[in-house]
Amino acid sequence: MKRRPLTTVSLSFIDAILCGFGAIVLLFLILSHNSIAQRREATEALQQEVEALEQQVLSGRSEAARLDAGLEQAGERRQRLLAQSKALSENIAGRRYDLARLETDKIAREAHVNRLKADLKSRDEELKRLEGGAMQRAPEGERLRAFPGEGDRQYLTGLKVGGKRILILLDASASMLGERIVDVVRLRNLPAPEQRRALKWRRALSTVDWIATQIPTGSRFQIYTFGERAGPVVRGAPAGWLDAGDPAALNGAVEATKKIIPRGGTSLYHALDVIKQLEPKPDNVFLITDGLPTIDRERGARYTVPGEQRLRFFDDALAVLVKGVPINVILLPMEGDPMAAAAYWRLAQITRGSFLSPSEDWP
């Protein structure tokens, strides 16, 4: 068998192919090694970043827990501060109440001292007047009610408590608590017992008590209070007149006035309308008040009423006057009402009654 001839061209081609294949494999290995190293480095970097983020998360959770604890402590501190604030407010309110009560007591003591000084100064003069020309007083045995005081007040004032039917009209509006507006505002916000102890209101009650002691035993009487409305002081009693000869009726009516608390506005219309409604009509009326009316028949929308409007309310009330019934006006002092004295003096003159603006120690 004849051998095939050897050709150099074929060997060289195979070598070239193998060399190229080896070069490709070598290049692939080099590139693959570099890629693995890069991925390893990238993985390590990402791992470090993850660990850093996890550390931040743990730090954030720790900070959140600390903030939650601080917030809870702040809430507890807020509650404590609110409780302390409430306690301080109550303490301040109590101190204000105590201060107002002390101020009221101070005013009452000063007024009492002034009355004592005035009494000491005028005692001799009153005694001389009484000895010189005092009217003969009723025997003490005929009086059903005694009033502690000095002198004959009927003689000194000109008031004559007489007649068959005697009506006492007592102003029970809020202004009867004090002579100054600021005192009225302060006292009307105090408890009821403090209001009943107001100096001006006690003077008004003492005036009613004094008039009651002068009522003849054979007369009949009635006591009404008026403010925004008018009504008898003895609730549930028989309508009409009470017997002045009955000690229980007289003393009960006077004691009933001491339970009243002054409040609201003043309507003179309703006070004078009582005279018109009573049957038979009174023949002697005593009106105890401290100023011009603040409302007409009904309360208006305004809380402050100018002096001109109050004077119109007064004139409107005169429309219900009953002819032939004398009205004796006892006007207690009140700040900021300069036209009241002239208006009530005119009312006393029209009805042929008397007008009295008493001193601090009266009655």
Rank of each mutant, 00 (worst) to 15 (best):
E228T: 14
D246K: 11
V233W: 00
E255V: 11
T257Q: 01
T225G: 14
V254H: 01
E255N: 13
A239E: 15
A253D: 00
R229A: 14
V233S: 02
G245T: 04
G231H: 13
V254D: 02
A237I: 08
A230H: 08
L242W: 00
G240A: 06
P232Y: 06
A253V: 03
G245Q: 04
G227L: 07
A249E: 13
D243A: 12
A244D: 04
F226R: 03
A239V: 13
A248P: 01
T257W: 01
D246T: 08
W241R: 04
R235V: 14
G252W: 01
F226N: 04
R229E: 15
A239N: 12
N251L: 13
A244P: 03
G245P: 03
A249V: 09
E255A: 15
F226S: 05
Y224E: 10
A244K: 01
E255L: 15
L250G: 01
F226V: 05
G252Y: 01
G231M: 11
G245W: 02
G227R: 10
A256P: 01
L242Q: 06
A244L: 07
W241Y: 05
A237V: 10
L250T: 01
E255D: 14
A249C: 11
I223N: 00
G236S: 09
P232Q: 08
V234R: 10
